[in-house]
Design a binder for these strands. Sequence first.
DNA 1: AGCGAAGATACAAACGTTTGTATTTAAAAA
DNA 2: TTTTTAAATACAAACGTTTGTATCTTCGCT
Lengths: 335, 335
Amino acid sequence: MVTISDIAKSLGVTPSTVSRALAGSPRVKESTRKAISETAVLMGYERNEPASSLRKGHSNVVGIVVPRINRAFFSSAISGAETVLNEHGYSVIICQTHEKMEDEIKALKTLKSNRVAGVLISHASSSLSGDHIMKNIRPETILVQFDRVFSELPGPKIVNDNFHGAYEGTHHLIEQGYKRIGHIAGFMDTEAYLDRLNGYKQALTDMGIDVDENIIFYDSIVEESGYKAGKTAIERGCDALYCAGDFSALGAYLAAKDCGIRIPEDFGVIGTANEFFTTIMSPAISSIAQHPYEIGRRAAQAFLTSLKPESNVGQIVVSMEVMARESSLRKKEKR
Amino acid sequence: MVTISDIAKSLGVTPSTVSRALAGSPRVKESTRKAISETAVLMGYERNEPASSLRKGHSNVVGIVVPRINRAFFSSAISGAETVLNEHGYSVIICQTHEKMEDEIKALKTLKSNRVAGVLISHASSSLSGDHIMKNIRPETILVQFDRVFSELPGPKIVNDNFHGAYEGTHHLIEQGYKRIGHIAGFMDTEAYLDRLNGYKQALTDMGIDVDENIIFYDSIVEESGYKAGKTAIERGCDALYCAGDFSALGAYLAAKDCGIRIPEDFGVIGTANEFFTTIMSPAISSIAQHPYEIGRRAAQAFLTSLKPESNVGQIVVSMEVMARESSLRKKEKR
DNA sequence: AGCGAAGATACAAACGTTTGTATTTAAAAA
DNA sequence: TTTTTAAATACAAACGTTTGTATCTTCGCT
């Protein structure tokens, strides 16, 4: 393995000059910088990252912590973040928490041991407060939260505009003439779900519809819970459901089908997240799309700007978009 | 940050003893080992991984390189590998190649710079040989290939039993009475697809059916290609398709639907990989399932055993399983 | 020519761990 | 008690980089 000293020797300079040259420091003359970087590639030099990290006190690695990598939202967000981080010389270490706070702590400890430069995190649903996050992050490490955030924690936060997304989605159902619209809401310890609930309520209120707690279902947003909630919603006279997740929407959708209820004629469904499967069902499932790739990009950018001393990124809100598909369209398009 | 020397000082021993104690070396007395590890947790010691990696020449990190993390197969394989690696004190750094050899080289270079202990890789479809892999891996680094492998490269290989999976899938279609069975095959530079093609051909031959190259489609296995191939297959009189991927199966399935052809009565479809969406379509799409979680586990285990000097893991074949669903079942179940 | 100020490079220490070798201590044998 | 052996720990160097400080050039200016 060729080191910085090998290059130094072969050119008759010192390792420090080589180091500075490769880092692009203004302290080394342009001509020598060029000579050094040329022989570096010639000799096949590759930086020893552990050595660099040890000396600098932190690595060129950014940790990304998410509940699961096989959700459309998270894998896209990761891709977005990865792309901009790679462009800036950082590599990425991805950790799954499987929605468990215990695994989240383990992941953060690992990242801490590896002296990562930053952590981009969307916390597990079982994490009820951000205490364990702050405890397992070094003060120099830059923390960026995205999607699911604890607003009491410091640092940049990239979030969906859940309130308005939910509002628009609910409004869309009302516009399509649905009268009794229920909501599969998720658990209220996650801010994102609370915002969606509030958007839903606001949309109803604005259109003069009373909020009925009997048709709001607080449960995990997986297919099975959606199915159950769907059945109950139908029993309670709902003719539409706005779901905080696509898998719960799928459950409700299948429940309606199993009851022999026609979608969208007799029952409207709209989910959230724009998972791939929603587009290929027949009828296709409407969904409130996020922009996960963009959110990942923004999170990475927030990390990069936070690297600079005086920066202060704060909260960034990314819009959501109603993808109206067959499952909620019973009026002819007017355009 | 508390270091090994801090612990040493507080106990009146030397750093080397602490290091050995924490590593569980037999060279330190049991009683001192206990005392050391106790004060270590008491003082909140956390190993500085970069320092450790620098000294040892390699890190406690394993790189996993896959085409995309949002494919059911890969995200499950990653989960499997992650689980067993974490149990053994390794963390995981995940790289996506987006099927591009260029990105694959970048990923390998990054892993090399980080002195990873091992690389688990499923190569990009545009990687035509393993040369660039060998070139960008240090000789001490353990290379494990899984799913898509280059058999000319050394080291453990964990593969699906693609031949028999394809054989069984094709056989299943024949058994269901389909007479003219086409194949969407993928590109032949990936061994997995070649094996599937051969399994398909063998099944036909064994049942006395001639192989017809006109109904074998060599194209990328995405939805769009599947749709096109599906149309052509129908024109050429096929009454069933075995597809090397689920997305191409989906394309063909939609093509048949668009042509007003009934599935499974007039046209049978079976895909490969058991993606989530195949289970929720109506009719549900049959698929030849792999065991990705198991493959990930095996790959990680192969890495761990390769750590031992005299080990020689070789090739491991993991079976596949036909998940017969509505899209290929037109006879009543006989059991 | 002499002086001062940048400009360019050299020097040297440090980051925290691991590990081969040397030394001390304890136990066993004589 | 002395000698031999083994067990336990101490010593010290090394891994490759980065970075503050020191030294040496080079140039422009008077």
